[in-house]
């Protein structure tokens, strides 16, 4: 699916630009985006180092083990394929809590860390495991208690009550999270049946 989407975005853009006689925007756009991607990766290095450093302290201090013991029933339910007391559990709890607290740039490093832990128990290294798909689904559903960015742009636009949407975002993202968990389960079952055949 990802191959098809990628091809569609490229091909549709290039054909349309050619048809409209603006083919030069393709080259410009491609080069500037490629440079922008490198800039973004470099920006990521700093926050990655910062949060992975803090995570290491939390790990050695036993903070992560404490949280993962507290929340292990939930994680076991969501990720049945992870063995008990595996470090992936703690990492998953960290990224989900960072997501919920709306920690912005802390979420990405923690998410990657959790994915790396899951990769260590993945059998086929190029293919996303069941647990990885579930984690990605939870992260893309983006459950946040305090959507700080939106509140900020609302008050910048002169809203009388910038936070009035918080209730709505909570209900909607909770609904989306639950639906995504269900969809993920169904897809997983479908794939398992297909593989067995």
């Amino acid at each position: 699916m990802i191959n098809l989407i990628w091809l569609f975005l490229m091909a549709a853009g290039i054909f349309y630009a050619g048809w409209q006689g603006r083919i030069e925007v393709v080259t410009q756009g491609a080069i500037s985006a490629a440079e922008g991607a490198v800039g973004l990766s470099f920006k990521l290095i700093g926050v990655m180092c910062l949060w992975l450093g803090i995570m290491k302290i939390a790990e050695l201090a036993g903070i992560i083990r404490f949280f993962s013991r507290m929340l292990s029933p939930l994680i076991c339910f969501l990720f049945p394929s992870i063995p008990k007391n595996h470090p992936a559990m703690g990492a998953i709890i960290m990224v989900l809590s960072a997501n919920m607290l709306g920690l912005g740039n802390a979420v990405t490093p923690l998410g990657i860390k959790a994915m790396q832990e899951l990769q260590s128990i993945n059998k086929e290294k190029e293919k996303a495991s069941d647990a990885m798909c579930t984690l990605l689904a939870l992260c893309t559903a983006g459950f946040t208690l305090v959507p700080a960015t939106i509140i900020a742009i609302r008050s910048a636009a002169g809203s009388i009550n910038p936070t009035e949407i918080v209730g709505a975002t909570l209900i909607v993202s909770l609904g989306a999270t639950i639906s995504v968990i269900i969809a993920d389960r169904l897809c997983r079952m479908y794939y398992q049946i297909r593989v067995r055949r």
């Binding site: 699916m1 990802i2 989407i5 990521l44 990405t108 998410g111 990657i112 994915m115 790396q116 899951l118 990769q119 290294k125 190029e126 293919k127 996303a128 990885m132 798909c133 984690l135 990605l136 689904a137 992260c139 893309t140 559903a141 983006g142 946040t144 959507p147 939106i150 949407i165 918080v166 709505a168 975002t169 909607v172 993202s173 989306a176 995504v180 969809a183 993920d184 897809c187 997983r188 479908y190 794939y191």
Partner: peptide, 29 residues
């Protein structure tokens, strides 16, 4: 406030561990 940039998350999270076959996660996202 209640959605996220699915393709960015997919690219970065799976990219960091070298996953090239995301299976059904694109659809679910």
């Amino acid at each position: 406030g209640s959605t996220d940039t699915t393709f960015y998350i997919l690219t970065v999270y799976f990219g960091a561990i070298g996953i090239t076959k995301p299976r059904y996660s694109v659809f679910v996202g």
